[in-house]
Amino acid sequence: MSPSVDYLLDLSLSRGTLDRSHTRRRDPGLIKAVLADPETQVLDMVDKQAPTCRVDGTLQLVFRPPQFGDGDQLVLYLGVDGDGVSYVALPRDSADGGAEDGAAEAPGPGWRTLREAGAELDDTHAGVFTSALALAHWHARHPRCPRCGAETVPEQGGWSRRCTEDGSEHFPRTDAAIIVAVTDREDRLLLARGPHWPENRLSVLAGFVEAGESLEATVAREVFEEVGVHVEDVVYRGNQPWPFPASLMVGFSARATDTGLELDEEEIVRAEWFTRGELNWAVRNGDVQLPPRVSIARRLIEDWFGGEIEASEEVSQPFRGRDS
């Protein structure tokens, strides 16, 4: 891997500012104490969406103080800010119903997903939403012990679950994945489309790190497997969490040593090399739809391009038919 100090430092979901207070999580009375504090900031999340509003043109999350009954549902402790104010999130699905006092209504106008809101939120709010969504996904997918199948219960402010049968403790999993902007010797950018994406959606290549594999090896393997191109000059560019549901996207750039494309059609159904002018024209007239601005993919593309690319229509929904 080539060294680089030119990192992408303004990635939307890497800007959290809260002190996660990991030692405080060990207190079994933490959630009760935090909910007893009227200064605590509570974020309702329904169907993975959170309430937002604009204040002087700036998008913000909408928090509320603790209310009676909050402690009867899953509470995720997210940490404290510089003023010592605690933040928690209460995730639920609208199909499950809500607290008896109706604190969290079903999503409506003003409720946004992280994909929709993340790029516009400030550092604290972006970090709160990102951590809350990652934890909410994990709890929803891990109600039972992977060792014995018994039910598990949340502990440590929602940062672990303990098996009620064998006592084993389980923690949120993060899956590492690489994402890479591949250019050729003429500085053209390679963009591709997966089989489950809409026909005009293109992005840079990405893939999960396999067991026993380094990040650099993953870059080389994924690019060759998906499009048949060898790469060199692999350069780290930055990383950000991607809680859809539980990834850490590690960004790179790389230079192709050859440009002939041989697609693995189970993974890639379209791949093209673009000059800056070609991509700008294709995006403006709607022939190419880029990843959302909240993604590291979009930042890698626009970093190569040299600035923001104005699209005819911005996308925020998942590329696939499910939130993955």
Rank of each mutant, 00 (worst) to 15 (best):
F171C: 01
P91S: 03
G97F: 00
G118N: 11
F224P: 06
E226M: 06
R20E: 04
D81Y: 09
R276K: 13
T113W: 08
R221T: 14
D323Y: 11
N280D: 14
V88E: 07
P109G: 07
S168C: 12
F171E: 06
P245L: 00
T58I: 08
R64K: 15
A104I: 02
R20Q: 11
Q73E: 15
R25E: 00
E216Y: 07
A297T: 02
Q67E: 12
P318C: 01
L263P: 06
P146A: 14
A176Q: 15
G157A: 01
D233G: 11
L8E: 02
S324V: 15
G212A: 12
R299S: 15
P146G: 13
G57Q: 08
V294E: 10
A50M: 12
I268F: 08
C163Q: 08
R112D: 12
Q289L: 01
L205Q: 10
L9V: 14
P245S: 07
E105Q: 12
Q41V: 09
H142M: 03
S14F: 00
L76E: 00
A192T: 15
L248Q: 15
G84F: 02
M249R: 07
D37P: 13
L202V: 13
L279V: 06
E314P: 10
F171R: 05
V227L: 03
T218Y: 01
P91H: 01
P195A: 06
S21I: 05
R26A: 04
